[in-house]
Simulated assay, not measured.
Amino acid sequence: MLDLTDLRADCSRCTGLCCVAPAFARSADFAFAKPAGTPCGHLQEDARCGVHAELRPRGMVGCTVFDCFGAGQALSARADWRAGDSVTVFAAFPQLRTLHELLRHLREARGLADGDLGEDLGTAIGRTEELAALGPAELVALDVEAHRRAVNPLLVAVSEAVRGDGPDHRGADLIGARLRGADLRRASLRGALLLGADLRGADLRGADVTGADLRGARLEGADLRDVLFLVPPQLTAARGDGTTRLPSGFDRPQHWTASDPARTSRPRSRTGRRSHRR
C-alpha cells in the first residue's frame, strides 16, 4: 500500500525522468527549448539538477512548478531509461504521474467520507494502487483517463457533501479577477481559471480547488485552511507570503515573499464574474 510519502517526489531516488522525458519550448517558463526524450543541459551524471537552487533566476520557472507525485522514483525502481527501453519508460512516466495524483485525491477524500461512499472510495484506492504497480509497458497501454473518469464522481460526491451549499464556480473564467477579500468559503473552484487573480485576503476555507489554475494568482493574506484537493504545484505557481494561511501538511514555497500586512487589509468583495459549470 502506498502512503503519502510515496506520493511525494524524491529526486534522490529518481533517474531524472522529469529532466528528460518531457519536451518544453522556450518561453516565460523555460529559458531554452528541449525536445522530448532529450536530457536537459542542466542534468548531471548523478541524475540531479545542477542548478536546482537557481531555477527561477535562470528562467526555468516551469521546473519549479512541476511535481511528479512520486512517479519518478517509483518508475525508476522498475526500469532505468539509461539502460533499457527508454521510449517505453518515458511514455509510462505521465501515466504513472496521473495515477499517483489521483491516489493523493482519493486518499484525501477517503479521510472525509464514511458509509457506502467511504467503502466505494476504499475500493477505488485499491484499484488505483493496482494500476500504479503495473510495469512500464502495461502502464503505456493503460487508458488512464478512463479510470480517472470512473472514479471522479466519487471525488465530486465527497466535495459536495463537505461543502454543502457553497457557491459553484466550476470552470469559471476568473483570469485576472479582482477577488481581494472575497468570501469563497466552501466554493467549488474545480477547473476554474484563476491566472493572475487577486485573491489577497480572500477566505477559501473548505473550497474545492481540483484542477484550478492558480498561476500568478496573488494569495498574500488568503486563508486556505481546509481547502479540498490542493496539490503543491498549485501553491508553487501562485504568489504568496508569510501571511498566507496554508492547510496542514503543506510547506510554504521558498520563492514566496516576506509578509506585508498592509497588502491584505481591504474589505471583502464579491466575484463579479459569471460561473460556468464543467
Results as ranks from 00 to 15, higher is better:
Leu154Ile: 11
Thr128Met: 04
Thr123Ile: 09
Thr123Gly: 07
Arg110Gln: 04
Thr128Asp: 02
Gly118His: 02
Ala150Arg: 15
Leu102Tyr: 00
Glu145Val: 12
Thr128Gln: 03
Leu134Ala: 03
Glu129Tyr: 00
Pro153Cys: 15
Gly135Asp: 07
Val156Phe: 12
Ala109Pro: 07
Val140Trp: 02
Pro136Val: 12
His105Ser: 08
Leu121Cys: 06
Asn152Val: 13
Leu99Ala: 05
Leu131Phe: 00
Val151Ala: 04
Leu112Arg: 11
Leu139Asp: 09
His105Arg: 05
Asp143His: 10
Arg97Glu: 09
Glu130Lys: 14
Arg149Val: 07
Gly118Met: 05
Val151Pro: 08
Asn152Met: 14
Ala150Thr: 12
Val151Ser: 06
Gly122Pro: 00
Ala133Lys: 07
Ala146Arg: 15
Leu155Lys: 11
Asp120Phe: 10
Leu99Glu: 06
Leu96Met: 07
Arg110Tyr: 02
Ala133Trp: 07
Arg149Met: 13
Ala124Asn: 06
His100Tyr: 09
Leu139Asn: 08
Ala150Val: 02
Ile125Pro: 00
Ala109Val: 09
Ala133Phe: 08
Gly135Cys: 01
Gly111Trp: 02
Asp120Thr: 10
Leu131Met: 02
Arg104Lys: 06
Asn152Gln: 15
Leu131Gly: 00
Glu101Trp: 04
Val156Gly: 06
Ile125Ala: 01
Asn152Arg: 15
Glu129Pro: 01
Thr128Cys: 08
Thr98Gln: 15
Val140His: 03
Leu106Met: 01
Leu112Met: 06
Leu99Met: 06
Val144Leu: 10
His100Ile: 04
Arg104Ile: 05
Thr128Ala: 08
Leu99Val: 05
Val140Thr: 05
Asn152Trp: 14
Val151Thr: 11
Glu101Arg: 15
Ala132Trp: 08
Val151Cys: 08
Val144Arg: 15
Gly122Phe: 03
Gly111Met: 03
Gly115Ala: 01
Asp120Arg: 15
Leu102Pro: 00
Arg110Ile: 00
Leu155Ala: 10
Asp114Ser: 13
Leu155His: 12
Pro136Phe: 11
Ala133Pro: 04
Leu121Thr: 10
Asp116Gly: 01
Glu101Ile: 06
Gly126Phe: 14
Asp143Trp: 09
Arg148Gln: 13
Arg110Lys: 04
Asp120Trp: 12
Arg110Thr: 00
Glu101Thr: 07
Leu103Cys: 08
Ala124Phe: 10
Asp116His: 05
Gly126Val: 14
His105Ile: 01
Leu103Ala: 03
Ala137Phe: 02
Leu102Met: 03
Arg148Leu: 11
Thr128Arg: 00
Leu102Gly: 01
Gly118Leu: 09
Glu138Val: 08
Ala137Pro: 07
Leu106Trp: 03
Glu108Asn: 01
Arg110Asn: 01
Leu131Asp: 03
Leu103Asn: 02
Val144Thr: 15
Arg104Ala: 13
Arg127Tyr: 10
Glu145Pro: 00
Gly118Val: 05
